[in-house]
């Protein structure tokens, strides 16, 4: 987990459209490079023409509109318009072929994930033909390197947008409309996604991590996620579980294997295995978790989680319990 944390802290590379790590992002980056280069050339040419037109040396008595010169100018302007049209047409053709490559349907063996946007966190679900094997987690997607991942995008409240720039462009999550996209991570790493559609108060703090790992470790992760939560082994953690189940926590969160089954907030069955809390905005450390439980409104004003006044001993027990949820 510390490796994951470290990777998260190297943000600039982990969250950039210019460091593609998947086929779609690579296509977009290729388009950007070619269009950027063309734009620089055309900009320099037009500015040179403008500055020359403005500052060229003029004969003392140049006639203003001279018919012969006007005709020559007409030809030059027509040629410039013609070149513009050709450049634009080239762009159009390359766009459309790039668009076909990006939107091609994913293969049959693609991993299927359902991502549901909530104000302001992400619910992630891995489905299976056997419902008991479904995995629900939050704010973190694990994927195997080199395999297509088909993501179904849903929203139950307002419009959000799913965007891991290193892997692919964004797609909106619209209530009442089903959207989907696919991506593929070509190299292992942790990539960040931020919500890209303004979704209210805490739009700024709604991120998600995409953890691309080797197929083996992905399989291990998935198997482990299917487990229910550990039963508390000592008195401190059992006290913690008691606190969880008897306080407001259980009203919104679920922990598989316990009576807590509400799906209003993120599923916490494997909370301790996740790198961040508060939707990808706080490293998952004991101190941060304690601060978050006691007063989430200070960290993320407007978040749906209320402050919790817990006895210091209870809080310690709760934290100890939550830390066992690997």
């Amino acid at each position: 987990m510390s490796a994951v944390l470290q990777a998260v802290l190297q943000f600039p590379g982990a969250h950039s459209a210019l460091k593609p790590a998947g086929p779609q992002a690579r296509i977009a980056e290729g388009l950007w490079n070619s269009m950027y280069a063309t734009a620089i050339v055309v900009f320099l040419l037009v500015m040179a023409a403008l500055l020359w037109a403005a500052f060229r040396r003029r004969r003392a008595e140049e006639p203003a509109p001279d018919p012969a010169r006007e005709r020559r100018m007409r030809r030059v302007v027509a040629a410039a318009v013609g070149i513009t049209t050709i450049v634009l047409f080239t762009f159009l053709v390359s766009d459309i072929s790039a668009g076909r490559a990006v939107t091609a349907t994913p293969g049959k063996d693609a991993i299927q994930i359902i991502v549901t946007g909530h104000q302001w966190w992400w619910e992630v679900q891995y489905r299976d033909s056997v419902p008991q094997r479904w995995v629900t987690t939050a704010n973190e997607i694990h994927v195997p390197v080199g395999r297509q991942v088909a993501v179904e995008l849903r929203s139950t409240d307002v419009i959000h947008s799913f965007w891991p720039p290193n892997l692919t462009g964004k797609r909106d999550l619209i209530p009442g409309n089903e959207n989907s996209l696919w991506f593929q991570a070509d190299s292992a790493g942790v990539y960040r996604a931020e919500c890209a559609e303004y979704c209210g108060h805490e739009h700024a703090k709604m991120a998600l991590l995409v953890v691309a790992q080797s197929p083996d470790s992905f399989a291990r992760w998935l198997t482990q996620q299917r487990d229910t939560a550990h039963t508390p082994a000592d008195s401190l953690t059992s006290r913690g579980q008691e606190v969880f189940l008897s306080s407001a926590c259980a009203m919104c969160h679920s922990i598989a294997g316990t009576p807590a089954g509400s799906r209003v907030g993120p599923d916490l069955t494997h909370l301790a295995g996740r790198a961040t809390i508060a939707a990808g905005t706080l490293p998952n450390t004991r101190g941060n978790l304690a601060g978050w439980i006691v007063d989430p409104q200070r960290i993320k004003p407007g978040a749906r989680m209320p402050p919790n006044q817990l006895d210091p001993a209870d809080l310690r027990a709760l934290l100890a319990y939550l830390e066992t949820l690997r």
Partner: peptide, 29 residues
């Protein structure tokens, strides 16, 4: 003169974001 320089830049990025694959990267950024 300033208008021409600035508008050219805005026009170029406008043409870029007309491209769907590129726009999906920079839309709403």
């Amino acid at each position: 003169l300033g208008f021409v320089a600035l508008f050219l830049i805005g026009g170029f990025t406008g043409v870029m974001i007309a491209s769907v694959p590129f726009d999906t990267q920079v839309h709403d950024t």
